[in-house]
Write a protein that binds this DNA or RNA. Structure first.
Length: 278
DNA sequence: ATGGTCGACTTTCGA
């Protein structure tokens, strides 16, 4: 087992329909652990065999019929954790304790609610649900943070682009769900519980545009390039050294996946973790 | 200019 492992996250918008693309991504990038969101199937419909054939022996699925859903597939041994964040009972999260070279870390895979169209919790239940879901995460990690120096990885589709250069047009999107000041604030509050490190910005300047999602509705999606950085990989401070070994080269947002055949509207991202530094 | 497109599973919802 090498000392450097690769973690990945991808909102695939249907695990079954996207399976050929997922297989291609795995062959190109060989992640050791891959968190999937929006699998859009029940657990018994998840393509376990395809992942087993690619060496992912360990699979945790939180599925439901038709909508949402998260799954984590891993080459490394995992133990399922018992956590719950969704007030509506949606399958939007799966937490796993992972063992790598005798080191343990937790891998929390999230699909935070998108929040509907109107950025007002009074008139839009979906926006309120998004805030409630993030509040449940914040409560959980606040309690955890009081106890010690845990090795945590949080990944997934957070459905919030926090920074000015995490969207194609900051001013144009200030009232658009995913980039409102209120969402940015509650995400920062979640991040502050542990002082989570935003891996995409660890070695890339805040002024550089970074996107992980582009609407299906856009024409000439890559030419117009009206993207948002909705997907995230965060690590707790105990893993800071483990993400710094390779600097900027340790992280990647795999933009070309957006123009593969039958693409997801999100692209995957990867982060290397140097186990010798934990 | 306020559309437009996906995917699952229905005659519509969530994104």
């Amino acid at each position: 087992m090498p000392n450097i492992i690769k973690l990945a996250t991808w909102n695939v918008n249907s695990a079954r329909l996207r399976l050929p693309s997922i297989e291609r991504f795995i062959k190109e990038e060989s992640p050791d652990v891959l968190g999937l969101q929006e699998i859009k199937c029940q657990e018994d419909q998840f393509p376990f065999e395809a992942f087993h054939a690619l060496g992912y022996e360990h699979i945790h699925v939180a599925g439901q019929k038709g909508y949402h859903g998260a799954a984590t597939v891993s080459k490394l041994p995992m133990t399922r954790m018992d956590t719950d964040f969704c007030p509506l009972g949606h399958a939007r999260h799966v937490s796993s304790q992972i063992t790598a070279n005798k080191h343990n870390f937790e891998f929390h895979n999230f699909y935070i609610p998108a929040g509907g169209d109107v950025a007002d919790p009074v008139v839009n239940d979906k926006f309120q649900h998004k805030l409630d879901f993030i509040a449940a995460m914040t409560n959980y990690f606040t309690q955890r943070a009081a106890k010690g120096d845990d090795r945590l990885v949080l990944v997934g589709d957070f459905n919030i682009a926090p920074g000015e250069h995490d969207v194609w047009g900051h001013k144009q999107l200030l009232k658009v769900v995913s980039h409102t000041p209120l969402e940015v604030e509650v995400l920062a509050r979640l991040q502050n519980t542990y002082g989570f490190i935003d891996c995409s910005r660890r070695h890339i300047d805040d002024a550089e545009k970074l996107y992980s999602w582009w609407s299906y509705r856009a024409r000439d999606v890559m030419k117009s390039n009206r993207g948002r950085r909705l997907d995230h990989i965060w690590v707790s401070p105990a893993l800071a050294g483990a993400v710094d070994t390779l600097g900027r080269d340790g992280h990647a947002i795999h933009v070309p996946c957006r123009i593969w055949d039958k693409p997801s509207d999100h692209v995957p991202m990867t982060q290397l973790i140097d186990l010798s530094k934990i």
